[in-house]
Write a protein that binds this DNA or RNA. Structure first.
Length: 155
DNA sequence: ATTCGCTAGCGCCCCCTGCTGGA
DNA sequence: TCCAGCAGGGGGCGCTAGCGAAT
């Protein structure tokens, strides 16, 4: 039937469906499922970065971060290719974001106006135009701003 | 049973560029 | 014409989670 390894993996997988997180960070009280996750997290507090790049002076908390860094900076390996154009990326998430430029998909909707973005940070940046944070402008979104709000937004 | 190594994924921030409207 | 504001596209890193393999 199942090998002991398979049973072990299954048992571990089942734990992912629970909220059990017995390993707590003593510095911020955040809890984690495994010791490894906790160790990595504590390293972010202490600044411990065991994975050092051999080609520059950068260092990272996890091996995955180092691999990704090396692809970006040194090997330029780009495993994720767009099937619609020549674009290729180090990360799957970047390809996903790129594909939205083909499909026109805009999942990040502004709750104050009709603007929608393909990228979460673009929406966050857009929101500054509503709050006036660091910006001074005529408000382009006449659909959702009253004249009173305009006077606030424009300083 | 536990740990290691790796991959996947989400999020954040920044830079560069092109467009647009007002001075 | 110049400049500032804004959005689009993309690069790079921080961090967490899941899983196969090794210990």
């Amino acid at each position: 039937m199942f090998t002991s390894s398979r049973v072990s993996s299954f048992n571990r997988h089942m734990k992912t469906h629970t909220s059990e997180k017995p390993h707590m960070c003593h510095l911020c009280l955040k809890a984690f499922r495994t010791v490894t996750l906790l160790r990595n997290h504590v390293n972010t507090h202490t600044g411990t970065r065991p994975y050092k790049c051999g080609d520059c002076d950068m260092a990272f908390v996890t091996s995955g971060e180092l691999v990704r860094h090396r692809r970006y900076r040194h090997t330029h390996e780009k495993p994720f290719s767009c099937s619609l154009c020549k674009y290729a990326s180090v990360e799957a998430s970047k390809l996903k974001r790129h594909i939205r430029s083909h499909t026109g998909e805009r999942p990040f909707q502004c709750r104050l106006c009709s603007y929608a973005s393909k990228d979460s940070y673009k929406l966050k940046r857009h929101m500054r135009t509503h709050s006036g944070e660091g910006l001074l402008t005529t408000v382009s979104c006449a659909a959702c701003w009253s004249s009173e709000a305009l006077s606030v937004g424009s300083g």
